[in-house]
Amino acid sequence: MPTIRIPPVLRSSTQGEKEVHAEGENVGELLRALADQHPATEAQLFSEEGELNRYVNVYLNDEDVRVLSGMETDVTADDTLVILPAMAGGQ
């Protein structure tokens, strides 16, 4: 089953889980499955129109899904999806 890595700012929405396993054939299905398991993540990941929010970067293994096939990008059981919002802390 593919692994989804949860960034620190979303962990309060996944009961502190840093990694979540979910079923899905492609990136979009995997993120939907995450939102089903942890409904609090849905509003942070998706816009009201159901699109992935522009401020959320998603990587399949080490590659940005925007340069692959976006939400349609196929995933396999060994893949890892990294969700990455920007961070600004420095002090």
């Binding site: 700012v9 979303l10 522009r54 919002p85 920007a86 961070m87 600004a88 802390g89």
Partner: peptide, 18 residues
């Protein structure tokens, strides 16, 4: 290129003390 738009407040905890 990496972060075209900043996240909203609830996903940008650096705005406050963390």
């Amino acid at each position: 290129c990496l972060y075209p738009t900043p996240p909203p407040a609830e996903l940008a905890p650096s705005c406050g003390a963390n």
